[in-house]
Design a protein around this nucleic acid. Sequence first.
DNA 1: CTGTTAGCGCTTTCAA
DNA 2: TTGAAAGCGCTAACAG
Lengths: 356, 356
Amino acid sequence: MTDTDQPAGSGEEFIPPAHMATLSDVAREAGVSLATASRSLNGSSRTVREEYRQRVLAAAHRLNYSANHSAQAVARGTSQTIALIVSDIADPYFSSIASGVMRAAEDQGLVVTMSITERRPEREAELVRAMRGMRPRSLIMVGSRRNDPRASRELEAELAAYERSGGRVTMIAQPTMAFRTVAIGNVGAAAELAGQLVGLGYRSMAVLGGPEQLLTARDRVEGFVGRCAELGVEIHQRRIVHGDFTRDGGFVAAAELHRRDFADVDLVFAVNDVMAVGAMAYFRTAGLVLGRDLAIAGFDDIETLRDVSPALTTVALPLQEIGRTAVELALEAGNNHRVVPIEGSVIIRESTPRRT
Amino acid sequence: MTDTDQPAGSGEEFIPPAHMATLSDVAREAGVSLATASRSLNGSSRTVREEYRQRVLAAAHRLNYSANHSAQAVARGTSQTIALIVSDIADPYFSSIASGVMRAAEDQGLVVTMSITERRPEREAELVRAMRGMRPRSLIMVGSRRNDPRASRELEAELAAYERSGGRVTMIAQPTMAFRTVAIGNVGAAAELAGQLVGLGYRSMAVLGGPEQLLTARDRVEGFVGRCAELGVEIHQRRIVHGDFTRDGGFVAAAELHRRDFADVDLVFAVNDVMAVGAMAYFRTAGLVLGRDLAIAGFDDIETLRDVSPALTTVALPLQEIGRTAVELALEAGNNHRVVPIEGSVIIRESTPRRT
DNA sequence: CTGTTAGCGCTTTCAA
DNA sequence: TTGAAAGCGCTAACAG
């Protein structure tokens, strides 16, 4: 029973400063049918007479019309949205990837909605569930998988349900689930780093691992320790200390290591740059001169951390590109579950000078 | 003409592995009306008999039902979305604010869609336009305003149109437009910093300013230089060099300053931490020992940069809280255009030791 | 308290 | 090509 439903005969009534112009408003203003307006504005190819098109465009402009995405999504049965779930957007690792995702999404005309798990694994399934409500074309999850069967099962079930209902899941993580995934070669890169470090003459190393169940952290430790062992450099369990995947985690872990068994350690490998920086802070307060008394290496090559001194030896990951790749993968047709491997590259800097 | 429209009489036909359960599916499965299903699932308060409620809930669970947000938005005439526009999510300043925004939004049960301008001012109006399509409850823009009348006018027009159509705009920036805004006290904090630095004995300072039209950068320079002048410490124009608001911008500006007029400079103030770090990198390569030969100060107190050495004197901004405040402001009723001021606090660290 | 029935804004057959 | 009309999935009067 709105005014707009009145027969055309009622004519020229005053139209109040419209709140938000609808397609009908535009159609009426242009003197064409709803269908024609739709076709000229958002429809498919050239099936509308040019003169009408122009009239509709002009009307839309005059009314400051902006198509209602929700209504389009309902009518079309598909949205223009990508859902992105990250652990912690304030962490530079995630924000760089997110940046890549958003740029790529925009190139495709997609809107991205983002949510954060605050590093709480239970939240992952919850968030996926919540995001399903938006019927996103695709759902990208970035963040390490965990060795937590219960949470993993729940998450996987939720994701599978989403895929069954027509969505596409893309993980940026370990390829532990049957979904499209951008797989970061943590093991290999960590091994390569270990190899180069041994090559530089280090023989007595320690590792600052992340949380024990975090697969990313685990893989990096494994790759590093494994290659060392292959090269005849054993790293004793006592010299692997775990901590949070954060700056403070690095600081605390370094302190623990220092207290525990530090006699002849010549190099400390922290499984990410953020932890490495925390560790550096600790060692400095402990009176060590980094790069001279002790070498240190990280992982990720975080941009904002490239100027710490001594400059940090690390493994560079193409973070932005990883995000972009995830979007491409997410948009691929078919229901393949392709895995795209991403390699890191070792960068030796001043924090690990050649041992003499 | 879908199968579901057939009269109930057709009974027990095989229902294929449903793609995505709809409310009707749930209602049918529970043996109640659409309305009852809606009420039990997403509706208002207790107006449904408990037994029915349970039946609906069970059915929904069995069918793995997830309400279609778009459809709800269309039917209700209002979405559960907040649009967030930032300059560059890979920059820690923005990602911290974004983090605060997202946490707060989630507490309110809102979804946030995010887009980045890539620091190109022309994109702002464009993005606002694009975002309007989602009919977000509120639109939060974070990023410095510019002294660019043309772009500003366009942006303001677009934002005003959005508000006229029922949305709420919240700026995290200078209160240069008539919208709700979280105003960061750049001038005052920079002045306070200058005061403390003069108190520490510095008398010959230089400034690394950001882009000339960026109001944030400008305000910080102004506040700093102004207070210095009040205290009898003049900073000559030649000693104010502008550069990008990035690490590299800081590096380049430092080099330029060094080349230009560096005779007795005892302190360099970079208008943000990221630039400060770039400048530090430059000065280090130039052979200066920071904290001894030259003092340096920044602005923002970026978390990941707290461990550079020497530790950077700076102005701490409650970034996460700023984001949270923006959401609160955005959700306030009425069409006030309230301005919430945010103060920074000076933190003196090793990079600016007392001059003796 | 429950069910019927109009919408919401837009797309898309289907005829004309 | 254009327009009428039937949906899309859901909410919200409005009767019962």
